[in-house]
Each structure stands twice: as structure tokens, then as C-alpha cells.
Design a protein around this nucleic acid. Structure first.
Lengths: 245, 245
DNA sequence: ATTATTAACGTAAAAAATACATTTATTTTA
DNA sequence: TAAAATAAATGTATTTTTTACGTTAATAAT
């Protein structure tokens, strides 16, 4: 380990393990996760408060260095599991953050990845242990380094992506209702939608399966549950069909 | 330099200079350029024939290791200038290629970037000196490593991107005619378009400035030149307007 | 049985996309 | 110098998609 050659970066000692092979005295490769969650009609972001120097007490995205023997997405999935208990989360590469001076004194390229979490699923204990928490998207505190920019880029990507891929389903439980789906899209796009037009559109894709069961938690009448027909979706995708909502 | 620690990769000696700081015995960061050009109605790709082992004689994208003191896009621009003589080419990050075993025996993450070149502009001598050449997109030879995948990803991105950003203008000369612009889009989308509808649409964005001058190289009547109104475009972009053609 | 609450649904109007054929400017050739 | 050849420029009618908008239905709570 070349840690000794960088006395002003002792802080990362605590984060390092001997098998973080990407840590050397030249260039560092990391990944940061922009983790969105959707809960009670609002879009949230998973961030944590740094417990070590520098920037102790400041808020940060959850990230990790990339090990020599893992892919970038493995690294992100690893840290995500450590933080939330969730495995195999849907995750997409956002872009690299590679400005020469983006980190404090050493060269580090970070590959941003955004993830969409079903908030109900995550392991509360693990999240608390790690010091991570869900923040309402509109009320985010300031983040370290270029993490604010990452969040800005990620929400822009999410909005665009949601227009041609049914990405939003990843944010909802396996079974979801149309009102839930609509409120998710409203949260992503930050605007209200007409329920009749929304239903018409979303059902017209033919990738939703209506279930017998109803969700009665939010109304007396109850709303039918739907689930996503992955097989049908992949068929349509391969034919080049657009899923713009 | 840690080259000696990797005796089986002496081949890269010839490509290395002392200031390629990203070359160490742990993880390597590179960038590869997927360079599209448009010429005489066909989409082309700039590739070169490797002159060194391994894979000598095979075709490859143009790429470089990323230096410690340069951004990824600087690295790509540097190698692009070395190869084509062009500076400040419009370039966009595609995605990272980071599979653990993607390179031959050592760990190398490559950041794919795609560029759009006005073929008329490039320095023919430089391109020839370097061994690079333009290949018609539909007739590409097999490329080394995962470069075929990069090309596949890049054309898909180009097609999608062209739908909501006037990216295509980057592929044309400063002054271009509407028939040229249409034929460019036809090449990107691989389908014919109706000229009346195309003109209607493209002019409706209000980002094209009609010039007095005509291009008479392809017809007796001649076609008016247009140029792209960058200022107007940026205004509209900030208002969130879509440029789908 | 009444009230309260949210889910489910259809149609008419406006806007956008598509399909389609003729005239125009200019050069070349007879 | 008139005729022919060539690609550029243009408008309208039809279809499709998007938008706007109000009423009835199912159930739980009172």
C-alpha cells in the first residue's frame, strides 16, 4: 500500500481494506451511487453523513473505490448492499466524473451510477448503522465534492430515461396500482398528470398485467394491483417500440 | 514506470511515453474514440490497423491511456488531434467498458467517447501517417477486444440522441444545405424521409439561419446554404424544448 | 342508510405527423 | 438561343396522437 506516500490523506485509511487494489499513488477509480427512492408520493435520495475527515459531518453520496477484481457495477452493488441490505438493485451508469482537480489533492475518476430503490424493501437497521438516510429530493442538503452535480445529472437522466423506458416500475413494489404509478411519474416529472390520459397511455403499451387483488390502503374503493409483464416488454423493446409516457 | 513488472506486455512499450501516468501495475484507464464521419451520403467510421503486438494487423478504434494531469475528454481530443489533425471536436462520453477481463491479461477500464467529424476537414496526411482510415459504416471489419460492442453502442446512442438534440449538425460543414442535412439524418436513421415534411420540421425549430449563398455542386438549381444558430439553440434548450426530427 | 373517499372510465377538440405532386432555378446540350 | 435535364423548393388534405374535461362506481366509516 502506498498510503504513506500521501500523508495528507490519512483519512481514507479507515475506508481502505487491503484488497482495494485500485488504490495506488497514481490514479484512483471510484464509483458513487445516486440512489433514488419513492415513498408516500415523494422522491427521495439516499445519502449519508461522513464520519471521517476530511469533510466530517458533511453529506455525501454512497460510494466506493473499485477493486481490481470487480466491475464497476459490482463495486456499486457491493457498497449498496453494505448500506441498505439490498442485492441486485437495478442500476445504470450515469457518467464519469473525471475533472483533474475534482477530488482533494489526488486524482480520482468516479463513475456515477444511479439506482432506483423500492423504499419499503430496504434494511432499516443497516441503513441506520451506516449513517445513511433518505432525504426528500426537494430538500437535499449540500453534498461534498461534485456530488451535487452528480445528483443534478442523475435526476435529469432519470427524467429523460423515464420518457422512453418504463424505468419507473423499478421504483415501485412488485405489485403496484395505477394511481401509485401515476404519482411516481408525477414525482419524477414534477408536474401533475391527467389520470384518464395517463391510464390510457400506460395501458396502451400492453405491458401491464391486471391482478384480481386490490390495494385498499389509500381508498375505500380500493385500486387494482398491476404487475409488469417483463416478457412482453422485452418483446416490444426488441421491435424498437417507444415507451414514452 | 512499472513496465518491467509486466514482462508479457512489452508490446505497449512502443505506445508509452514517460508521462503516461495512468500506466501502473494496478489498474489502467484508457479512452477509445468512436469517430463517425459523414461523406457523400454515407456514414463512416474512423479506425486504424494496429502496427504493434498483440493483434498486429487487426483493426481497432483510436484510443489512448489517460494521463494523470488530463481529463478523459482531453485525452480523447489529444489522440484525435494526433490522428486527424482536428482540434476541439464535439465529443460525448458514451459509457465505460470495465469488464474485469476485457483487456488481455491486465485490468483496464476504457471510457468510450464518440465523436462526429466533418470528413472534409480532417488532415488526410495525418490520418494516413497514423494508418487510420474511414470505413463505410455498413462494411466495418472486425475490431479488437470489445471495440465492436463500443461501435454498436455508439451508433445506438447516436440514433437516439439525434432524436432530441440537433447533434447531426456537428457532422456537417459550417454551411450546409437542407438536402445534405436530410441525407445525414437518413444515414443515421437508415430510412428515407419525405423532403417536405423534413424541411417543415427542421425549420420549425427556428435554429437555422438561411444564407444568401447557394451550393451548386449537386444540382443545377443549387441549394441554399444554412448555418446553425447556436445562440438561439441554447436559448431554446434552456427552456426545455425538444428537437426531435 | 347515508356520507365520504378515491378509482375507473369515454369523448370531443386541438395539435402533430404523415402522405402526396407540381413548379422553379439553373446548367448543359442541341 | 431554345429545349432538355436535374435537383430544389413548396402546400394541403388526411390520419394519428395528444390534450382537456366530468360522471359514475365501489367500499368503508359513521
Amino acid at each position: 500500500m502506498e498510503i504513506e506516500t500521501k500523508p495528507n490523506f490519512k483519512f481514507i485509511n479507515s475506508m481502505w481494506e487491503n484488497d482495494y487494489y485500485s488504490i495506488h499513488d497514481k490514479m484512483y477509480i471510484a464509483t458513487d451511487c445516486i440512489i433514488f427512492g419513492f415513498d408516500e408520493g415523494v422522491l427521495k435520495l439516499l445519502i449519508f453523513k461522513r464520519k471521517v475527515q476530511p469533510d466530517e459531518g458533511k453529506f455525501s453520496l454512497i460510494g466506493s473505490f473499485v477493486k481490481l477484481n470487480e466491475s464497476v457495477s459490482s463495486a456499486a452493488n457491493r457498497v449498496l448492499e453494505e448500506t441498505t441490505g439490498l442485492k441486485n438493485v437495478f442500476m445504470q451508469e450515469l457518467k464519469t466524473y473525471n475533472a483533474v482537480d475534482r477530488d482533494l489533492g489526488f486524482r480520482c475518476i468516479s463513475i456515477g451510477q444511479y439506482a432506483l430503490i423500492r423504499i419499503e424493501d430496504y434494511d432499516k437497521d443497516l441503513v441506520e448503522k451506516y449513517g445513511a438516510m433518505w432525504y426528500t429530493f426537494d430538500e437535499l442538503p449540500d453534498l461534498v465534492l461534485d456530488h451535487n452535480l452528480m445528483v443534478k445529472d442523475a435526476i435529469a437522466r432519470l427524467r429523460r430515461k423515464a420518457r422512453y423506458q418504463p424505468i419507473g416500475f423499478e421504483l415501485l413494489p412488485e405489485k403496484f396500482t395505477l394511481p401509485q404509478l401515476q404519482s411516481l411519474y408525477e414525482a419524477i416529472y414534477q408536474r401533475e398528470m391527467d389520470s384518464r390520459n395517463f391510464r390510457k397511455k400506460v395501458l396502451s403499451f400492453g405491458v401491464l398485467i391486471k391482478l384480481e387483488e386490490k390495494d385498499k390502503t389509500s381508498s375505500k374503493k380500493g385500486a387494482f394491483y398491476y404487475k409488469f409483464d417483463n416478457k412482453k416488454y422485452n418483446e416490444l423493446l426488441s421491435k424498437g417500440i417507444n415507451f414514452e409516457v
